[in-house]
Design a binder for these strands. Structure first.
Lengths: 197, 197
DNA sequence: GTCTATAGAGTGATAGAC
DNA sequence: GTCTATCACTCTATAGAC
């Protein structure tokens, strides 16, 4: 776990989070890793390759975590609540990687960019299916599926921007707030909704 | 309006939006403006100075637009609805500048960074006061003011990331969706809320 | 697997002519 | 106000020794 390749990647996550991908030089990464910059290229083909590795493993882990959770929850509202909690918790617990995954897509080559966008689209589809199912069953109001799925995801993702690990609220408390805010919006988020008060 | 200084700034907005601040070179800006890069420095002190000008005018216009709107709306719920609409509309109509304002803060010097963050804090305070007033009057549930204000603002701001001017929905329709989603979340966004169904 | 050395190109910014 | 020319530096990436 403490092999050079892993150290380089973890130093990268810190630096890309703090300074941004383009503002981070390979020299910075080498200095942080305690090696010479030429040695980086033994482990990774390029700086972009490093970024791609970080984004791939983050997206992979995110999708797997959500799928594993949803495999053991039944009913559309509990499933949506569980999905929101997983999304929030993952983004807060792996704040740096998730921040990078949302801010630094432009650093990727065209093919790598497409790969990550495809993975994100697949992930969003899980939420869109849940919304569609919920409106179909009358549990949620008849909301716009695309806009609401973006809304839910960006809302939870935004936590990775301002969250401070030793701040006022714990991850679980933040998840509570988001979960209730979102489900309320889904249930009552229309003037003409039959579910509205 | 078509003077060189204005052209340079507008080319910058396009390039910073498309490629990002660090990935945009002064040569790129000069090429886009149809002048030599040395000429840029007659109008602006540095590349960072250009970024700062863009962010300052965006934040200024945003705050003024909101204040002017709220000056003619009474009642906490109508004021919150109006505030959300102004925020959404401004971010969609001036998508590029707002995207930059949220993505490129790290490109600023320490002092300039502080200036923009202070302006944003002042702006957020307007929303936080509205939430506090609403919970005080019993119009909104007893929600967490800080988290909810971040939630409302990032939600609406996110539109600047995915919005396409000639997409499926018009600005007003998107504002409708957000307005109702947010007000529902504010009213019912707690299990133990007296306002909940 | 890590090093030193360096290639080759591009960077932000300035000097001074016109 | 815009130009050409250039400074001084940094960048990503590679070659080749050990």
């Amino acid at each position: 776990m403490a092999d050079t390749k892993t150290i380089i990647k973890s130093v990268c996550i810190d630096l890309f989070f703090k300074k941004g991908y383009f503002a981070t030089s390979v020299s910075d990464i080498a200095r942080g890793s305690g090696i010479q910059k030429a040695s980086i290229y033994y482990h990774y083909a390029s700086k972009e390759d490093l970024l791609f590795h970080i984004l791939m493993s983050t997206m992979n882990d995110l999708t797997i975590t959500l799928e594993q959770r949803l495999a053991v929850v039944a009913g559309v509202e509990p499933r949506m609540r569980a999905a929101v909690r997983v999304h929030v918790a993952f983004h807060l617990e792996r704040q740096k990687e998730n921040f990078i995954a949302n801010a630094e897509l432009r650093g990727l080559t065209a093919e790598h960019h497409q790969t990550i966008v495809d993975m994100r689209d697949q992930y969003e589809l899980i939420f869109q299916d849940l919304i569609r199912q919920g409106t179909g069953e009358g549990v949620f109001a008849d909301v716009d599926v695309k806009i609401l799925s973006y809304a839910i995801l960006t809302l939870c993702t935004a936590g990775a921007t301002w969250y401070k690990p030793d701040g006022r609220l714990a991850v679980d408390e933040i998840a509570d707030i988001y979960e209730n805010f979102i489900v309320s919006g889904l249930k009552h988020g229309r003037f003409d909704s039959p579910a509205a008060c």
